[in-house]
């Protein structure tokens, strides 16, 4: 009786790793694509929406990558 071995290549990455990368994806996308002072407002309050520090830092990439900017 011959034994046939099937070699199956499995991609085995944990759900925790997938979840961690999903969070990194959402956070990074928000920083570059959509922040209008929201992140720094946690620390600086309303002034962050005037200063737009992250918005200005990501301004050129935001335009170049196709995100609406202002």
């Amino acid at each position: 009786m011959s034994t046939v071995q099937h070699s199956v290549s499995k991609t085995s990455v944990s759900k925790v790793a997938i979840l961690a990368l999903a969070i990194i994806f959402a956070a990074g996308l928000f920083v570059v694509g959509f922040d209008q002072g929201h992140i720094f407002s946690v620390v600086y309050g309303e002034q962050a929406f005037v200063d737009l520090t992250i918005h200005e830092l990501t301004h050129d990439m935001r335009h170049a990558a196709g995100f609406p900017c202002h």
Binding site: I24, F25, V31, V32, E56, M61, R62
Partner: peptide
């Protein structure tokens, strides 16, 4: 100067974000 200096840094942040989706 501030906006231009962020071009590569923002590229890396966006790259990590989109790269994470790509990796998943």
């Amino acid at each position: 100067v501030w906006q231009k200096s962020g071009q590569v840094l923002a590229g890396m942040i966006l790259g990590i974000a989109m790269g994470s989706l790509f990796g998943i």
